[in-house]
Structures are given as structure tokens and as C-alpha cells.
Amino acid sequence: MHLVYPAVLAVLLFCVGLYGVLARRNAVLVLMSVELMLNAVNLNLVAFDVWLRDTLHAGQALTLFTITIAAAEIGLGLAIVLMVFRTHGTADVDRLRMLSDSAEAAEGDDPDSDHSMASATDNPAKTASADVPQGKATVG
């Protein structure tokens, strides 16, 4: 078999996952896109292992290890997403800006500040012109 077929499939799968990570809003969907990227890497590892005929089978061993780490990653990631959902009432990665520099996000530790967070998300230029120094609010 031509090596280009699995390599190109892995590249395209990785880029599909990249698009999903960047474009999705729900955190669980972001995790699913990460799984797609990990699977692209696995396909590469298997294809190159079969091509190189390594006596240690390093590619397949690393594939098994990657699958294990992916299982650990999805478990921990979903636990964190669940905790964030319980704390803030949303799993939207766009609305989780607790760590950003704007004043609304800094005082938005309680769940009832969803409104101010949403307005900060919708109109960053307006919040930047309020009482926050210019440039700090637009960074987040």
C-alpha cells in the first residue's frame, strides 16, 4: 500500500479536529475534536510502524499508550467540564472568562453574574470604553 494514503488521511483528520477545537463552543464538543486529533496521530503511528518494520514495534506500542492517555484525558476533561458546568451553569468555552483581565470577569465569581459576562462577550468594545483601561479588556 502507498504510504501517502494513511499519511494524507491522518493529516486531513487532524485538520478537521483542529477546526473543531477552534470553532466549537461547547466544551464537550471541543473534547470530541481533541479525540479526532489524537486518532489522526494514532493512524500515523500505526502506518509508520508498519512501514518501518521496527523490531521493537515502537509505533504500535506508542499507539496503545496514546489510547490509554486519551482515555485518561477524556475522563479528567469531562470531570473538569462537569465541575465548571455545576459552578457556572454553562459549558460554553466562550463564556468562561474568569481568568481574563476585564473587570466584569474579575468580579464574576458568582453564578448570577452571567448577564454581565454575556454582555462582555457580546460587546467587548463597549465594555472596554467603560471603566477598564483600554487594551486590557480587549485582550481577553
Binding site: H2, V4, V8
Partner: peptide, 28 residues
């Protein structure tokens, strides 16, 4: 923006991979 990033990455990587492994074959 995500679509642009993904398309650019896909184009770059596909060009690179096809150019690098044009003549390699796997003996299954």
C-alpha cells in the same frame, strides 16, 4: 478564522506529506 486556519494547515501538511512520501510503499 478556524476554517481558515484548518484549511491552511491542511494545505501545508498535505503538500509536505505528499512531497515527502511520494515514492514510499508499505509491504503489508
Amino acid at each position: 478564522v478556524a476554517l481558515g486556519v484548518a484549511v491552511v494547515a491542511a494545505a501545508t501538511l498535505v503538500t509536505l506529506v505528499v512531497d515527502a512520501f511520494r515514492c514510499t510503499w508499505i509491504d503489508l
